[in-house]
């Protein structure tokens, strides 16, 4: 067989599979978002209703706006905290040596843990009667003694954030350690010869060279924060009330629990739009020229 035919035949199954499992549902969701799309109605009653689902979300649903704000706040807090803490940890661990390499190896563990299980374990840790973290905070910060974390809107949000960053910092630290190790030693040594040390060395030499990797970390984490579902579902199930209801959770509830697939699809598509921009930004880093 000629290479010219073969090369397309080789990619065909993969392209078809990606099309069927990702592109089709994306397009079909868009179509559903313009229909009544109620699970309990027969196909004949699923007529097109234009942008009604979208206007309904924007104008008639405070719960939609609530989940938008929860998601944005969640994303802002988790992205900034994970990035800063992961950078700090990466700087601490990058020099290597026995202790540091050992810890680097362990960093893979939280990321191999199912996010659903992370949610469960944090619910365990913050149990007001026998939770270890609950006891810890209660001991060192008496304000929190005897507090029922998951029953308080603000504290429940804080626990969701803690579970999230606990799961993500280790992995992003590994990414940043990789970035740090690819900074040429000569530039650092040259700066040290010039008398730069500590903070100035970090700000003027390390940070600019690390910028592309940091950008990748921020974009990647933003994407995953925006679509957070698993931990929140297991940890608070959106509660108390709707205090921790992220967009994914809101879509899940409206689509699958209340059977309003059409409405859920419209909210889902509102969520896809920022993803397109983030993906575009991410792809620029993947395809950048060396």
């Amino acid at each position: 067989m000629r290479d010219n035919t073969l090369k397309y035949l080789l990619v065909l199954p993969a392209v078809l599979l990606v099309f069927a499992t990702a592109i089709w549902p994306l397009v079909e969701s868009l179509r559903l978002s313009f229909t009544v799309g109620r699970l309990n109605r027969p196909p004949s009653l699923q007529q097109y209703i234009g942008f009604e689902n979208y206007t309904w979300a924007f104008l008639e649903e405070p719960a939609f706006w609530n989940s938008v704000w929860v998601t944005l706040a969640y994303t802002a807090v988790t992205v900034s905290l994970t990035t800063v803490l992961a950078l700090g940890l990466a700087l601490l661990l990058a020099p290597g040596g026995r202790l540091r390499s050992g810890v680097q190896t362990l960093l893979i563990l939280p990321f191999a843990m199912s996010p659903a299980l992370i949610g469960v374990s944090f619910r365990f840790m913050f149990n007001p009667e026998f939770g270890l973290f609950d006891a810890f905070f209660g001991f060192f910060m008496p304000v929190f003694a005897g507090v029922s974390w998951l029953a308080d809107p603000v504290l429940a949000f804080a626990v969701c954030v803690m579970a999230d960053i606990w799961g993500w910092i280790p992995f992003l630290t590994l990414v940043l350690i990789g970035g740090l190790s690819s900074i040429p030693r000569e530039t650092i040594e040259a700066a040290q010869v010039d008398g730069a040390g500590g903070w100035r060395l970090f700000r003027d030499v390390t940070l600019p060279q690390l910028a592309p990797v940091l950008a990748v970390v921020v974009i990647l984490k933003s994407i995953f924060s925006l679509k957070t579902f698993d931990q929140v579902f297991m940890l608070t199930n959106g509660g108390p009330g709707t205090a921790t209801q992220t967009l994914s959770h809101y879509i899940y509830f409206n689509g699958l629990k209340y059977g309003q697939i059409g409405y859920a699809a419209s909210v889902a598509w509102l969520m896809v739009i920022p993803m397109i921009f983030l993906t575009y930004a991410y792809a620029k880093f993947v395809f950048r020229k060396d």
Partner: peptide
Amino acid sequence: RLRGETVMLVTILATQFVPAVVIILPFFV
């Protein structure tokens, strides 16, 4: 070198970022 190679690769990459909840609605139906 394939025609549309970059488009294909970017699309494949992008599908990773599609929220799972978007994919699952049509599949459920």
